[in-house]
Design a protein around this nucleic acid. Structure first.
Length: 305
RNA sequence: GCCUCUGUAGCUCAGCUGGUAGAGCAGGGGACUGAAAAUCCCCGUGUCGGUGGUUCGACUCCGCCCGGAGGCA
């Protein structure tokens, strides 16, 4: 009997945090955040990291635990989160994995184990200086399968695949197969939240940004930008931070920078939906049609709680 | 009141000397195994302000009307 895991995904601004708390309370669980940005320290407002009021006493893991200037990846996330799941299980509780980072969620829940260390800095730098098309052709020779699935224009992913062959001597395709677990070590119930009304989701994304500004996003970003090495970090890619940096750099007026945050948030929500929709074994609930309690009731009727 | 410029996709605009329109952004769909809130791919029929006219044929020329911007009074 595999240990039970509840998961909550879906686009941003659909109420995952609140529902995650409700679900954890109902199922005697603890929340394990699955958000590539909330896990950084000091990025609270811009990532809408759960506040003490929002968590309502439910323990949240993987929030504010990494130095923003340090580079972090899916592999690091899984290395940190998997033991937390084990610990929660060991204490007889249910982990509730909540967040919008689809890649992190899938890797964690499928029991992926990443091989070896990541030492690609120099190789990566050299590859970036080269022509994208040429790189893709090179990849087509070294790892035809990877090349077939990566668009030549997607330089970032072409380089990643090349890095793997060049530094490990193993194709990304072969490596990926070795890293994947034959089957998930968990009994997963995956729930995704969305809004049926697209216009409403867009409006909520915009309101979310306005609220962040009211809560002091500007000050948070200003403070963070003083940290050395931050601009080159993964954390800096977070929506809100890089846009407000253009304001601090005098490139855009504040109003425009905030507009950019809004459109970036809306586009992000769209990409998240695409990701989460891929998994057919997911229960989707429209938050503009069902309350959290109604969703819990439905899950009970399905014998999932 | 007169003169000039202007009115083309949700927004900003391209459209040579007439042959019924096309970009960027927004929006939609998708991909995604160590940067993933990242990166990338696909999708553009709209009364070309309205109305008359010239023409085989007008977004493109002419008249008038309506709506903008500026200048002179």
């Amino acid at each position: 009997m595999k240990p039970r895991v509840l998961a909550v995904g879906g686009p941003t601004s659909t109420g995952k945090t609140a529902f995650g708390v409700l679900l954890a309370k109902t199922a005697c669980g603890e929340v394990v955040s699955c958000d590539s940005m909330q896990l950084y320290k000091g990025m609270v407002i811009g990532t809408a990291a759960p506040t003490p009021e929002e968590t309502g006493g439910v323990l949240h893991h993987m929030v504010g635990v990494v130095d923003p200037a340090v580079s972090f990846s899916v592999a690091d996330y899984c290395a940190m989160a998997a033991p937390i799941l084990a610990d929660i299980h060991a204490r007889g509780l249910v982990p509730v994995v909540v967040g919008g980072t689809g890649l992190y969620m899938d890797c964690l829940l499928s029991g992926m184990t990443f091989l070896g260390q990541q030492e690609t800095g120099e190789v990566r730098r050299q590859l970036w200086a080269q022509d994208g098309e040429a790189l893709w052709k090179r990849l087509a020779e070294l790892d035809p399968q990877a090349a077939a699935s990566i668009h030549p224009a997607n330089k970032k992913r072409v380089i990643r695949a090349l890095e793997v062959v060049l530094t490990t001597g193993e194709t990304m395709t072969a490596r990926a197969a070795r890293q994947s677990a034959a089957e998930s070590p968990y009994e997963v119930t995956k729930i995704c939240l969305d809004l049926a009304d697209r216009e409403l989701l867009r409006a909520r994304c915009e309101r979310r940004v306005d609220e962040m500004m009211e809560k002091g996003l500007l000050e948070e970003v200003e403070g963070l930008l003083k940290k050395p090495g931050l601009r080159a970090s993964t954390a800096f890619q977070s929506i809100g931070y890089k846009e407000l940096a253009t304001y601090f750099d005098g490139i855009l007026p504040l109003e425009r920078a905030v507009e950019d945050i809004k459109t970036a948030t809306k586009k992000y929500a769209k990409r998240q939906r695409s990701w989460f929709r891929r998994d057919g074994a997911t229960l989707w609930y429209y938050r503009d049609q069902l309350s959290g309690e109604a969703i819990i009731d439905d899950l009970r009727q399905r014998n999932l709680l």
